[in-house]
Design a protein around this nucleic acid. Sequence first.
DNA 1: AATATATGTAAGTAAGTACTAACATAAGGA
DNA 2: TCCTTATGTTAGTACTTACTTACATATATT
Lengths: 184, 184
Amino acid sequence: MEKTNKRMTREERRKQILESALKVFIEKGYNGSTTLDIAKKADISEVTLFRYFDSKKQMFMEAIEPILITSLKESLVESQGLEPMEKLEYILKNRIKFISEHSEVIKLILMESQINPEVADFDFVRQITSILKDSIKDTGIGLEDEDFSIRLMMGSILSFLYLPKIKDNEIDSYVEKLVDTISK
Amino acid sequence: MEKTNKRMTREERRKQILESALKVFIEKGYNGSTTLDIAKKADISEVTLFRYFDSKKQMFMEAIEPILITSLKESLVESQGLEPMEKLEYILKNRIKFISEHSEVIKLILMESQINPEVADFDFVRQITSILKDSIKDTGIGLEDEDFSIRLMMGSILSFLYLPKIKDNEIDSYVEKLVDTISK
DNA sequence: AATATATGTAAGTAAGTACTAACATAAGGA
DNA sequence: TCCTTATGTTAGTACTTACTTACATATATT
């Protein structure tokens, strides 16, 4: 064994492996990622990987877990007490910033829930749609325009998955324009 | 060999294999699809597959080819002569119908161009964005709102990849509302 | 009837891959 | 110094998978 100062505590190493794994999964997808790829990215031997995780599947699930946990709660809690229209605006800003910041992971999850539902089973689009539907009902926007508004909002959200990133304050002004459009 | 009436001409079989292959690729992705899967879906032996195609890669590329060829030309040609705003509306309707009708394949291409660029190398989002940018310039919409409009349109288009399908006439009225919103 | 074409079956090869076992060693803490 | 913990190396197993070869047979064409 080489003389090296790569030694870490168990927790540090675990975390570092998961970060490396996530990078590889994002780049090559679940099926396209090998455990050797991940080991190389983490700069450790393949055997060490399996001292920390029982299987590739487990690595994947733990790697995406943080995103899934964070994904929904915040905005709903923090927006309590606001007027309906302000609440909608708040949720949109919050959701879009989150999605924009984690677009790569979210695209991965979106993809794997279609292709490998056994490792990532999340109906991301439906979840957000249903939250937005609830919010929009609160605002009292007419039924006729509801589908239009929902699609406009969902489309905007999805655009932040695929179009180049923009700054937070630009997101804010985008959402303000959008809400203005919807409520007119 | 069994007595069977599965015999086809070379052209028929080729076509049928590609159709089956596309279904499998859509369901499992390129890496997740095996040549045996494809053979089973086409109800032929794996060996026969390789009598028609040299490799899985070739099968994939030929399977998605029709979509790539059709994707851009039509709407540009057919919209010639229209007023800028009508042209924009026409392109949007056309693009959205096409995307809505082929959403599964397009999602596959979107996915594989990130993960396996050697089998599908298409910058789908950029291509459409640039066409829309050109169209919107023609309409004379102000610069300040250009980014907003582009994102609204691209988002709408993407929404038709991920939200449930709707009827053609509903697409028409959606686009009309959208263009109205943008041009106001 | 003779020939060409489409397909099947059986068997196999070579490479890749998730995961394991056994043993060795370096570093940190007691 | 002793012991524990983190890591490496080497080798291997069992399975999957893209693709091939050889041979047989059913169907269509001439």
